[in-house]
Computed example of a mutant assay.
Amino acid sequence: MRTRSDTEANVKSTALARVADATGNWVDTLAPLWSRPYLRLARFDRPIGSWLLLLPCWWSVAIASSLAHDVSRLPVTVALFFVGAFAMRGAGCTWNDITDRDLDARVERTRSRPIPAGQVTVRQALVFLVAQALIGLAVLLQFNRFAVMTGIASLAIVAIYPFMKRITWWPQVVLGLAFSWGALMGFAVIEGRLGLPAIILYAGSIAWVIGYDTIYAHQDTEDDALIGVKSTARLFGAKTHQALVVFYSLAVILIGLAIWLSGTGPVGWVGLAAFAVHLGWQIARLDIGDPALCLRVFKSNRDAGLLLFAGLVVDALIRTA
C-alpha cells in the first residue's frame, strides 16, 4: 500500500522532472513544485515561441500607429499584446501537447513533456488550456469589435495545426498562418480594418516563420522519419540552406514592401536592414547536422524580430512627433 509520504515523494519527483531541451530555467529552479508541470505545458520554461508569436503583433502596431500619425495607444497596445501572446502561446502549446501526446512519447526530445511523462493528465491539461484561453479573451476584449473578430478567426488555424504534420510536408506553412496572425492584429486594433500593408506584412511574416521553423524541425529529423512525421526540414534536407535563402529573402522583400506602402522613414529601413543581416547570419551559421546549434540559431530569431521592431517603433515616434 502506498503511504502518504510515498505519494508526496512521487509528486515532488514528478514536479522536479525537467523537459529535455529546457534546463537551467526559472521554472525548474524557482517556481513552486505544484506549478512546474503547468508552466512547462505553457512553455514558460522555453518562452522563445511566445516571443516569436508576439513580434509580428508589435511590428504591425508600430506600422499602424505610424500610418495613423498617432502613437498614444502604442504603449498600452504593446503591453496587451505581450500578455495576450504569452497566454495564447501557452494555450496553443497545451493543445499541441494534448493532440501530440502519443507522438511525443516516441521522440527522444519530447518524451519528457508533462503529458507523456505523466506529470499531468489530459483532463488537467484541458482545464489549464481553458484558463489560458480565457486570459487571452480578456485581453482581446480590450480592443474594438473588428479586432475581436479578427483575433477569434485565428482559432481555426490554431486548432488544425497539430494535425498537419501527419498529412503534409508543409506543416510550417500552417504554423506561419497562425504565428503571423499578429501582423494583422495591430492594424485591426489601430485602424479597425485590414489594408494592403497588413496583408503583405502577414505574407512576409509567414515566409519568416517557414524559415525559422524549418531550422527548429532539424532537431528531430531522425525521429520524425522513424515515426512518419512530415516537415519542411525533411522535405528540404541537404538543400535547407538554399530554401532558407528563398524564404528569408521573401520575408525581407515582403516586409519591406509593407513598410514602403506605409511610408515608413529611414529608421524603419535601418531596422529592416538589421533584420535582413541577422537572417543572413543565421543561414551562414547553420549546420543542420548539429541539433544544439539548430536550436540556438532558431532562438536567435527573437533578436532579429526585435531589431526590426526597434526600427519601426522609433520611426513611428519620430514620424508622429
Rank of each mutant, 00 (worst) to 15 (best):
L312M: 08
I152Q: 08
F86G: 05
V27R: 08
D287M: 07
D6W: 10
A79R: 04
I215N: 07
A188M: 12
R43P: 01
R319Q: 14
D213I: 01
T221F: 01
V313M: 05
F275N: 03
T232F: 03
H278E: 11
L54M: 12
L126D: 00
T264P: 01
L254V: 03
R145E: 14
W281Y: 13
L52G: 08
T99C: 09
V71R: 00
S180C: 04
V246C: 08
D303T: 14
S35N: 01
R40C: 06
A31F: 05
I98E: 06
L194F: 06
G84V: 04
A138Q: 10
W181D: 07
T7D: 13
L286V: 09
L226G: 10
P291Y: 10
K12A: 15
K165P: 08
G311V: 04
K239D: 15
D104C: 08
W281R: 15
A153R: 11
C57N: 14
L33W: 09
V19I: 12
G182I: 05
T14G: 10
R113T: 07
D45V: 07
R166F: 06
Y216V: 02
L261K: 11
V173W: 12
G182F: 01
T121Y: 04
L184W: 07
K12S: 12
I160N: 02
L30R: 14
T168E: 11
V122L: 11
L129V: 00
K299T: 04
A233F: 06
G49Q: 04
A20K: 15
N96D: 15
A156F: 15
V313H: 04
W59T: 08
F143C: 00
P37R: 12
K230M: 13
L226V: 10
R123Y: 05
A178S: 12
G176D: 03
A310Q: 03
N301H: 13
D223E: 13
V76K: 09
S205V: 03
A105W: 02
A276Q: 01
G136M: 08
V314T: 13
G204R: 05
V313T: 11
A233L: 08
A207K: 05
A243K: 03
Q282S: 12
R40H: 07
A233S: 08
R145G: 00
Q242D: 13
V120R: 05
S154H: 05
C57S: 14
G211F: 04
H278T: 10
V27P: 06
L201E: 02
L53K: 11
A133G: 12
P114L: 06
L308M: 11
D303H: 10
T264I: 15
D287T: 13
A9S: 14
A85D: 04
